[in-house]
């Protein structure tokens, strides 16, 4: 079974050059049944990552471009009156897919944002009194421009918490960029990609993640991390219990990707920046540090018990 996972990673790495870490984190997020927020400048390959993953995993893909005039109905769908049958017929919106790319989510109004975020939380939507279950697996990749860009509604902290991870793409290194510039058009390759996995297989993997063993020693380590963020003067507030659970399930998924059946501290450390960077805020005097520095300091400050 892990053979197909390896194929997925391998195929994705062929297209998204020089970003193995981001690919693995995105997959981890998917396996842990979380949702992913990618925050970076336009044009660094956020959309490509989503498309490649959807293709490779054989998921039904939908893209929603968020704009300031986007309405909830544009996401969820509407009932339209059919003249011939003389009744209302529901036209499902783009949310009824297995992988959603919510592009530039912070450009939409909070009302439209919350329509998506509620769907993410509940795995179902209620429209005109009828509850409709979303397909499984259901995975949202939202992209966000950095806050200082014009015309953006920053996601509030409570909604950021709905995302399991927040990652950054970053610029590719020189070698990867050379390959990108000299190679074939990426969009062309994507259309030719073949699925390496079926969605049923993905569901089984998601089940397996929950069975990855966690020893008491590892729980000690996670609790030490949580305690440190709560006692330290560096952060405005410590990590919540939900953040602890997120850290644990992401670490499990990471261990599975690494073909291990038990979580080790390195797994926790690998997913920690993604899981905690949007949940931790430095107090003002440390704000000059980036969130990367903050999470790296967190890892270095907590000894493995």
């Amino acid at each position: 079974m892990n053979l197909s996972l390896n194929n997925v990673i391998h195929q994705a790495e062929q297209i998204i050059l020089g970003k193995p870490q981001q690919i693995r984190l995105a997959l981890t997020c998917l396996l842990a049944r979380g949702h992913l927020l990618i925050e970076d400048l336009p044009g660094v390959g956020k959309t490509t990552l989503a498309q490649v993953l959807a293709r490779t995993l054989g998921l039904k893909f939908q893209r929603i471009q968020f704009t300031s005039d986007l309405l909830p109905a544009d996401i969820l769908g509407v009932s339209v009156f059919q003249r011939d049958s003389a009744e209302f017929k529901f036209h499902p919106g783009p949310i009824f897919a297995q992988m959603i790319l919510a592009d530039e989510i912070n450009r939409a109004t909070p009302k439209a944002q919350s329509a998506l975020l509620e769907a993410m939380e509940e795995q179902q939507v209620t429209i005109e009194g009828v509850t409709r279950v979303l397909p499984a697996p259901f995975f949202v990749i939202a992209t966000q421009n950095p806050a200082h860009q014009v015309g953006t509604f920053l996601l509030p902290e409570s909604q950021l918490d709905r995302f399991l991870m927040r990652i950054q793409m970053g610029y590719p290194d020189a070698l990867a960029e050379r390959g990108l510039l000299s190679g074939v058009d990426r969009r062309e390759i994507i259309t030719r990609l073949s699925p390496q996995m079926e969605s049923a297989e993905l569901l089984v993997l998601q089940q397996l993640v929950r069975k990855v063993f966690v020893s008491p020693a590892l729980l000690d380590y996670i609790q030490a991390i949580l305690r440190h963020t709560r006692e330290s003067a560096r952060y405005t507030h410590g990590l919540s219990p939900r953040a602890g659970l997120a850290l644990l399930s992401a670490a499990r998924a990471w261990a599975l990707l690494d073909e291990r059946n038990a979580v080790i501290p390195e797994d926790v450390q690998a997913v920690l920046p993604g899981v905690t960077s949007h949940r931790l805020q430095a107090v003002s005097e440390y704000q000059k540090h980036s969130s990367n520095t903050l999470t790296r300091e967190l890892i270095e400050a907590v000894a493995i018990p």
């Binding site: 080790i264 501290p265 390195e266 450390q269 890892i299 400050a301 907590v302 000894a303 493995i304």
Partner: peptide, 9 residues
């Protein structure tokens, strides 16, 4: 070994 360093690392 640094205190925060896992065995594999």
């Amino acid at each position: 070994r640094a205190a925060h360093e896992g065995a594999q690392d």
